[in-house]
C-alpha cells in the first residue's frame, strides 16, 4: 500500500456484485465503495440503481446487527459511509463485521421491497427559481452560458439533444427511485427508473450560493429536491412543495423532519406556480395532504421493465452523443 493509498481492503468482483473497496476516511470513518468510482458517463442507470439498491439492503442489515461502536451510517449512490468511535471498536474488527455481512449477500436481484410512491406537484417555471439563476449570474458567474433568461431548461434540453417540451415530458413520465438523503437537511437524491428518462447535464461551475426551498435540480442522471435554502450545484428544473419541516407543524413530519427516505419512489405531476405557492401556504398551517400510495418494488420486475425501455434509452443516448459534439461543456 502506497503512502497515500487509502484502500484498506478489497473484496473482488463477484457475479451480480461489483468489486467492494474499503477506504479509510479519517480516524472515525470508513467508506465502502461498490465499483471503482467510474465517471458517471461510463455507467448506465442500471449499474447505478443496482449499486444503490445494494447499499440500501446492506445498510438495513448493518443496522439490524447493531455493531458496538458504530454510531451511524450514511448511504451514498454507490457507497456506504460508516461513522464509528475508534475508542470503542477497532478498525479491523469493523471491517471484519462488514465483510461478513457483504459475503452473505451475493446480489440484489431477488429483492422485493415494500415501499410507497409520493406524488409530487412540480412547476417548471417559478419566480424563485428565476431569482436563484439571476442571482448566480449577477453575483457568481456572469459568463454562465447555461443560465439563459433566468432558466437552465434550454441548456439541459440542448445538452441532451431534445426540446424543452420533450425534456419536461421525460422528466414527468418516469418514476424516480430515492437512493439517499443528505447534503443539507432532507434533500433526497433520486434516479429515473425508466431509462428513457435518463437525462443528464453537467453541474454549475462554480456552485450556486443560494437555492430556494423546494427547488428541483438535476445533473449526472441524478435529481434532487432542496429541503432548506442552501448552496447547490446542479441545473435547476423547477420547484415542488416542502419536504423538510423541523418543527412538524404538518402531521406528515411528525415521525421524521424529512419527507423522504431511501427506496421511496417519486412521481411528479405538473402544476402552476400559483398552485405551488398555495400549497406552501397550506403546509405552513398543517393543511394539504401529501399523496402517497403503497408499492411493492421488485428488482426482477424492474429489470424486465428496464429491458423493455432499453431501446428508447439507446435512441436518447444517440441524441445525447450528437448534442455533446456541439453543445458547450461547463
Amino acid at each position: 500500500m502506497g503512502k497515500f493509498d487509502p484502500v484498506l481492503k478489497r473484496i473482488p468482483l463477484r457475479e451480480g456484485c461489483p468489486e467492494i473497496v474499503f477506504r479509510q476516511a479519517g480516524d472515525g470513518f470508513i467508506e465502502v465503495v461498490y465499483g471503482n468510482n467510474e465517471a458517471s458517463a461510463n455507467k448506465t442507470i442500471k449499474d447505478i440503481i443496482l449499486r444503490s439498491l445494494r447499499v440500501i439492503v446492506i445498510n438495513g442489515k448493518i443496522k439490524e446487527s447493531k455493531i458496538p461502536g458504530l454510531t451511524e451510517t450514511v448511504p451514498g449512490g454507490e457507497s456506504l459511509l460508516y461513522v464509528f468511535d475508534p475508542l470503542k471498536i477497532e478498525v479491523d474488527d469493523l471491517i471484519d463485521r462488514i465483510t461478513q455481512i457483504e459475503m452473505a449477500l451475493p446480489d440484489v436481484y431477488d429483492q422485493v421491497i415494500e415501499t410507497r410512491v409520493l406524488h409530487m406537484p412540480l412547476t417548471f417555471e417559478h419566480s424563485l427559481i428565476k431569482k436563484a439563476i439571476e442571482k448566480y449570474v449577477k453575483e457568481v458567474n456572469p459568463d454562465a452560458f447555461y443560465c439563459k433568461d433566468g432558466s437552465n431548461l434550454e441548456y439541459i434540453a440542448q445538452y441532451n439533444g431534445i426540446t424543452v417540451e420533450e425534456l419536461k415530458q421525460r422528466f414527468l413520465e418516469t418514476e424516480w427511485l430515492v437512493s439517499m438523503v443528505g447534503f443539507f437537511p432532507g434533500l433526497p437524491y433520486y434516479y429515473p427508473l425508466n431509462p428513457a428518462s435518463a437525462i443528464t447535464c453537467p453541474k454549475y461551475n462554480p456552485a450556486r450560493t443560494w437555492t430556494p426551498e423546494g427547488a428541483v435540480d438535476l445533473a449526472d442522471y441524478c435529481s434532487t429536491i432542496f429541503g432548506v435554502e442552501s448552496s447547490g450545484g446542479c441545473q435547476l428544473i423547477g420547484r415542488t412543495v416542502p419536504i423538510f419541516q423541523a418543527k412538524a407543524v404538518h402531521s406528515q413530519f411528525e415521525k421524521s423532519p424529512a419527507l423522504f427516505k431511501p427506496t421511496d419512489i417519486i412521481q411528479f405531476y405538473e402544476v402552476s406556480e400559483q398552485e405551488i405557492d398555495d400549497i406552501y401556504e397550506k403546509v405552513s398551517k398543517g393543511e394539504w395532504e401529501y399523496q402517497t400510495t403503497k408499492r411493492v418494488f421488485s428488482v426482477q420486475e424492474w429489470l424486465a421493465f428496464y429491458e423493455e425501455h432499453e431501446e428508447e434509452m439507446k435512441q436518447l443516448q444517440k441524441k445525447q452523443e450528437m448534442a455533446r459534439k456541439t453543445v458547450r461543456q461547463v
Binding site: V74, F183, C222
Partner: peptide, 28 residues
C-alpha cells in the same frame, strides 16, 4: 480521471466524512 468527461473532482454522490474531510470542489 481527468479525461473521463466531467470534472475529475466529481463523483457519484457519497456520504462525506465530516467533520474533518477535506473536500475538493472543482480545483478548490
Amino acid at each position: 480521471r481527468a479525461n473521463a468527461g466531467g470534472h475529475p473532482s466529481n463523483i457519484t454522490d457519497h456520504g462525506y466524512p465530516g467533520p474533518g474531510g477535506v473536500n475538493i470542489s472543482g480545483d478548490t
